[in-house]
Design a binder for these strands. Structure first.
Lengths: 127, 127
DNA sequence: CCCGGCACTCACCTTTTGGTAAGTACCCCA
DNA sequence: TGGGGTACTTACCAAAAGGTGAGTGCCGGG
């Protein structure tokens, strides 16, 4: 009830976006698909380390959110193609600055965290 | 070993950035501080719903990553000011497009998810 | 004199997230 | 005949993230 200490408007935009793109593998999936449509098995091989369960789960969520399109080809061995929708492409674009930021500052962050992890390196921590 | 099915370069930029800004309240904290320095209690009131534990934990991580600055004023009632560093400001900028995207498409996403949540609205789901 | 606010810290618990491993149904190839 | 590839589903588990509530020391106000 105070005079307004802080801005509360907006706020949630980030939550919304991270709810869509915030899974462990979603960025990778989006990125892989921004290179062109891929089949399920292709994606699995691209995202080395991902389990089938997580890959499908994330793909289902991305499909529900209409950022990826799933197309089933009725064929002898099952064949499913995943691709970015136009909407998905806007998300990838919105993600890019953040990705660039991370790429640009990765080494700085690593250094800073390493330094923070060991309390007494050699010099006395002045304070 | 294949001819290269997909791009694996980069990738991690997003992971790095989300590791810094990806907590439940970090976006809110960053946003609140981008409006100007705040005291601990002020932040707590701004981010209604946050527990003290999470607020401190996130602030400590942001401080370690050098995106926020913590300044203790030796005073009769303890007084601590938190502010964005210049580095933190670059992160806020990188976050903005994503926040804008979320704000812009929130209602679309809500609609799509509501529709996906109820399998049979009125029409028989053919299949 | 006790209560509340300041800025925390700590122990414990629940929820969410991600991972493992197995099974399904079908087909081709050796 | 059976092993591998296709695209999944399911049950169970572990780890991480987040939340609750209490305690700390010091002070001013009612």
């Amino acid at each position: 009830m105070a005079v307004r200490e802080c801005r509360t408007t907006f706020v949630s935009g980030l939550d919304v976006a991270l709810d869509v793109a915030g899974g462990k593998w979603k960025g990778l999936i989006l990125w892989a698909l921004s290179d062109g449509p891929k089949r399920f098995g292709q994606l699995r091989r691209c995202l080395s380390g991902v389990s089938e369960k997580m890959l499908i789960q994330h793909l289902r969520e991305l499909e529900r959110d209409e950022v990826v399109h799933r197309e089933v080809h009725q064929a002898v061995p099952p064949r499913v193609d995943y691709s970015l929708t136009a909407f998905g492409a806007t998300l990838v674009e919105a993600l890019r600055p953040l990705s660039d930021w991370g790429t640009e500052h990765r080494s700085r962050l690593e250094a800073v965290r390493t330094a923070a992890a060991r309390p007494a390196p050699g010099k006395t921590a002045a304070l």
